[in-house]
Design a protein around this nucleic acid. Structure first.
Lengths: 343, 343
DNA sequence: TTGTATGCGTTATCAT
DNA sequence: ATGATAACGCATACAA
């Protein structure tokens, strides 16, 4: 196919039209302050007149900066990631950078290909989700000298930069809250743990809190389901479809979608929330505070995470000092779906 | 800042290491069939050995193809757009193209800047949402000869390509369904119409259906709210917080989020759905079928729209023939939130 | 402050 | 089938 931009004006055309050198035009575009008022005005006029549009590839080639940042996320179908990406895009956009988006569908192999692809596009930085990546991903990133940051996680032990929160601790806290309410048998509908460190950490957090209280997470009280309503409902049935004396009195869900599914299914089963069963979520999606009786959950600062991750990359690009790890606070949102067990 | 890729191997390095010309290496990478088995193997070995990563900017400059497509959407916070974008990304990814994402926040001026920015990045095509764009956007796109397509809309009258559905008709159909149920006073909680042709079309569709039945959409029965739960609840209060004999018996909502808000607020007000008030949504988000009594809504083929829009661009890029307009079917999803008025 | 000239890493044309 | 080489459009080091 014929070049899209071939007939369009180039720096040279502008230079010729304005009677200056290409260097001057370039300066007007990139460092206007370094050009005399007079020439600048003249050049800018030609830019508008001829409808000049920068040629990013040429610019990138000459400056070895693409003015783009890549984000590699599991999926956009999850509202919480969509929010995070939205925040990333906003922050980058404010700085004149553009976001390249790649989705992995929770597939590590695919993730490697995506990262490589973004690198080929010359992105100035890459934002990842989670810390559980193929070692080849990190190798490639480091070999290429491309700034990157893990998000949605905060791992002191990791040697890689991250901006996020501690999923283990957050899950522990909500579990402790339930324990404090008097629950001694707590079940969990977790997300799929394979290839998802956040899901694993949340299970670990629940388990640890339970163990610290001298309780445990019985295998029979733990089910693992995709983050979808139908799957969550099924998980709930699995945990609650047993004689009352053999049921947990509280269910910690791996995220709000699973929790909503549990609430819905409880309604269908005629099980009262929170009287018969306490339910908690994770993420604090918008519906949590609105859906009666209010979903008790953990607020995850997805927007802030996106903003900070973008800023980390921006700092690295600019050569500014940047914190290697930033931990953002989560917050336990106490609402109506969790209460003391009926006894 | 120092070039990221500067120390990394280039085509030349591979060529030297393999004892061939850069042309051959380029061929191995792009048209492997045109190179002899022997050389190809040797080159491929060096590519792996040296950890070669393509330099996209150079490639784009030389070939005037960036292997990227841009999408400009109002926001990712809306689940329905997130789904569409996810589909676009999948389809592009399958073809080896990468998605550049730009968000407008429903701001037309910002949209122009975003399109321009994507063009500067040399995208091979652009996917827009809706048909209501600044004329300058189309001018620019056409001047640049960049393939583009409107989505989420199907407008026979428009001279621009589109893949989507007719919002007017869809909104009419759900309204007619309510009329058929016996409702004669129908209200609406619409999205913000300014700068949003989909929102406007839905209002128009409701109004037209009503008029055709000899009814009308009284100004007092129409409220306009952002697509958010809190706003939707407020809108519902506005419509229902009146003496019973002065209320609509059915509320058409501009999307599912507003409808969910209405359902929630109805519950809070002690108004029964659908006995006291019928409620309908638009989009068919996943929760619609799960949340009792099931939200009657219009199914919007967001995934398919994303896929088709991507394919339209792919066809244009490849110089293949492509349908100028494609209309996708919507479907009325009849569930429990709408019923005959109590009378 | 402005201009000149080189090089960025590919692709693609033209020979061979 | 393979190689040599000229663009591609811009940024920037250096010169003026």
């Amino acid at each position: 196919m014929v070049s899209r931009q071939s007939e369009n004006p180039t720096l040279q055309d502008i230079a010729a039209a304005a009677g200056v050198s290409t260097a001057t035009v370039s300066r007007v575009l990139n460092q206007p302050a370094s050009v005399s008022e007079k020439l600048r005005v003249r050049v800018e006029a030609e830019v508008v007149k001829l409808g000049y549009v920068r040629h990013g590839a040429a610019r990138a080639l000459a400056s070895s900066r693409a003015y783009t940042v890549g984000a590699v996320i599991p999926t956009l179908e999850s509202a919480i990631f969509a929010t995070g990406v939205n925040a990333i895009e906003s922050r980058l956009d404010a700085e004149g950078l553009t976001l390249l988006l790649a989705v992995t569908n929770y597939d590590r192999t695919h993730e490697f290909r995506q990262v490589r692809n973004l690198l080929e596009h010359g992105v100035d930085g890459i934002i990842l989700v989670g810390s559980d990546h193929d070692e080849k991903v990190f190798d490639l990133l480091e070999q290429q000298g491309c700034p990157f940051v893990n998000t949605w996680t905060h791992d002191e032990a990791s040697r890689h930069p991250c901006v996020g929160f501690d999923n283990v601790t957050a899950a522990s806290r909500i579990t402790e809250y339930l324990i404090g309410l008097g629950h001694i048998r707590i079940g969990m509908i977790a997300g799929i743990q394979a290839g998802n460190d956040r899901a694993r950490d949340r299970v670990a957090g629940v388990r640890q809190a339970l163990n610290r209280a001298g309780l445990d997470l019985a295998p029979i009280d733990l089910v693992e389901r995709p983050y979808e309503l139908a799957a969550g409902r099924d998980g709930f049935i699995r945990l609650l479809g047993r004689p009352p004396q053999n049921r947990p009195t509280a269910i910690v869900c791996g995220n709000d979608v699973l929790a909503l599914a549990a609430m819905i299914e409880a309604g269908g089963m005629g099980v009262q929330v929170p009287e018969d069963i306490s339910i908690t979520g994770f993420d604090d999606l918008p519906f949590c505070e609105h859906l009666p009786p209010g979903l008790t959950t953990v607020h995850v600062p997805s927007r802030q995470m996106g903003t900070f991750a973008a800023e980390y990359i921006l700092d690295r690009i600019a050569g500014r000092p940047s914190a290697m790890r930033v931990e953002l606070p989560t917050q336990l949102m106490i609402r109506g779906t969790a209460a003391a067990p009926r006894r």
